[in-house]
């Protein structure tokens, strides 16, 4: 990868001000490629790095997917010298606000967690400086149905055992996250007698808390804990997604009853985590068109598909239109569900 890459216009003034005789050749090279990229036929192409906002810290699921896509994207699908720069901007409301309020020029995009974004918008109107429905949707990377897990040595063999139990405990990550929401929706739908502890930092902490015996069950994504299921540390009791959200290559999940089979059709698919790629509202059409194509091409790239398989990260790409429809559905669902959860 070339080190001397086209820099944005704004760098020029800095270099002039600093009057750096020593590095003048370098600075000149750095600023040489400065031409505007909008060509005559109305199409658009980036001429500098694209910032990709991840509203979580480095290392989690959203971060992993983002880095995987960014790498393949900048290697084979972007003009030479244009890179995708991952920016981790936790906490969630801050990160999503940044995505929403960025300049609509195509140089800032991000990965949006659904339904967390809409749930936060409803629950915390003061913090949520965004309208989920107004983002420019570029596509979807993955769909992550939730699963109710218990530690392997748990006395609960079936979901019915869990329903019959009294005074049980659950553990989850921060309030307002999609996982926490899925947990609450489950407790409410199944009418569990459960107490929730919040604040775990990431999937591994949730699992270890359960293994320690600090929680009797937990609700987490189907794609995040494959390793712990395969190692025999935890086992799934119920799948909260719909039939067609069930990843085919997850053998361990095939015999697990779905919410629908267990008699809770309303819960099925009510909270499924979508990893959506968006830009700020009102992205100009040529820009949005370019980015949508770019994303679709990248996710269809053999290299990306191989990476996803190796990293145990299933991908469920969807077009922008399909994604928009899915987001609209979740918004309607959440507008109904979230106030109920708040009351319960």
């Amino acid at each position: 990868m070339s080190r001397i890459t086209p820099h944005p216009r704004r760098r020029r003034r800095v270099s002039a001000a600093a009057a750096l005789a020593l590095v003048a050749p370098l600075v000149l090279a750095a600023c040489s490629d400065d031409a505007s990229s909008a060509s005559g036929d109305g199409s658009w192409e980036p001429d500098r790095d694209i910032d990709w906002i991840v509203p979580y810290s480095a290392g989690g699921g959203f971060d992993t997917y983002s880095r995987g896509i960014a790498e393949v994207m900048q290697r084979g699908h972007l003009p030479d010298g244009v890179n995708v720069v991952i920016r981790n901007t936790p906490p969630l409301p801050q990160g999503i606000s940044q995505m929403f309020n960025a300049d609509a020029d195509g140089y800032t995009i991000g990965i949006l967690p659904m339904p967390a974004a809409i749930a936060q918008e409803i629950q915390e109107p003061d913090l949520a400086q965004w309208k989920t429905s107004e983002f420019t949707v570029l596509g979807q990377v993955d769909e992550n149905g939730y699963v109710v897990y218990v530690p392997s040595d748990s006395e609960f063999e079936t979901i019915e055992d869990l329903i019959a139990a009294e005074d049980i405990r659950a553990i989850t990550v921060e309030q307002g996250s999609s996982s926490a929401l899925a947990g609450l929706a489950t407790i409410q739908a199944l009418d569990l007698d459960a107490q929730v502890t919040y604040g775990a930092e990431g999937s591994a902490e949730v699992v270890t808390a359960a293994l320690r015996g600090d929680a009797d069950f937990f609700v987490y994504g189907s794609t995040d804990l494959v390793g712990f299921v395969e190692s025999g540390d935890i086992r799934p009791l119920m799948y909260l997604g719909t039939e067609d959200q069930l990843p085919e290559n997850f053998d361990w999940l095939q015999d697990v009853p779905t919410a629908e089979e267990a008699g809770f059709p309303d819960l099925a698919g009510a909270v499924t985590e979508l990893r959506v790629i968006v830009g700020p509202p009102d992205l100009p059409e040529p820009v949005a068109e370019y980015l949508r194509g770019l994303l679709a091409d990248t996710m269809a790239d053999e290299e990306f598909i191989t990476w996803a398989e190796e990293a145990d990260r299933p991908i469920v790409p969807r077009t922008a239109e399909e994604t928009e429809a899915a987001i609209a559905d979740q918004i309607t669902q959440m507008e109904e569900l979230v106030p109920q959860l708040a009351d319960g």
Partner: peptide, 27 residues
């Protein structure tokens, strides 16, 4: 062994491992 980052640095290293198809954790 558990994929729980002991520090901010380990968190980034674990992220990088996943990038390379190595999943830290019990397996």
């Amino acid at each position: 062994a558990f994929g729980i980052p002991g520090s901010a640095d380990w968190a980034i290293v674990l992220g990088a491992m996943i990038m390379h198809g190595i999943t830290p954790g019990p397996n």
